[in-house]
Every structure is written in C-alpha cells, then in structure tokens.
Amino acid sequence: MKVINIPATEDTPKVVLDHENKIFEISGRSLPEDVVVFYQPVMEWLDNFENTPIPNMELAIKLEYFNTASSKLILDILLKLEEIYQDGTPLKVIWYFLSSDTDMKEAGEEYSEIVGLPFEITEY
C-alpha cells in the first residue's frame, strides 16, 4: 500500500497515512475551497485499505479549524472506516481538541453519535 504524507498548508491539513510506521493522522486546518480534490488521495487510500486491511489502525484527527465542506468529507472518511470496522477489522479514531475549544469537542461528539466505531475524544 502507498504511503501518504502531505504537509500542511495555510488552508489544508497535514495528512499522514503510513502503515509502515503506524502513523495515521489528519491535523491542522482544513479549509480548502475544493475539498473533493484535496481528499481524493485519502479516499483512494481508504479504498485500498478496505481491500487489504491492517488491524488496529488508530487514526488521529487533530484539527484546529475545518469548513463545512471538509466536515462533510470527514464524515465520509468516518463512514468508510465504520464499514471496514463492521466488516471485522479492529480500528479506532481519536479525535483531539484543545482544552479551550468547546466547539471542536462538540464536533467530535456529534461524529461519534453518528458513526458506529470505537471513537475516543481527547483533550490536548
């Protein structure tokens, strides 16, 4: 499987999907105007992961800001992971929020209410 390592920019997050080093992370700001284009490699990676799943992946989502279009795409990522989890591959999502950021905490709680997979919400 391909390793994805996209550095952060002013309006796009850092994305690391690296099964060799067991680092799975989306962090920073997700405000692109065209979210579909930005997340295309991530969705492709998830399709591959679904075909050749590796157990016990822990995806860290650590966002400072995201726009509503990204919010829809994050949901699509989580729904895809839910599918993989319910097909029998154990995995976990860890949603990080800054202790002062109540909106980001609530955003995590709202996702966890929708998707059926182990979902941890952690302050940092």
Partner: peptide
C-alpha cells in the same frame, strides 16, 4: 438540522449556502 443536512448533502450542495 446540521447533522441531517450534512448526512444527506451531496458535494454539489456543499458548495451552496445550505450547510454553511
């Protein structure tokens, strides 16, 4: 409303003002 709209939105709609 936000949860429902996000779940049901297609990407052509996210560029509209709906969820925003």
């Amino acid at each position: 409303l936000y949860k429902d709209a996000r779940l049901n939105a297609t990407f052509s709609e996210t560029s509209g003002a709906g969820i925003g």
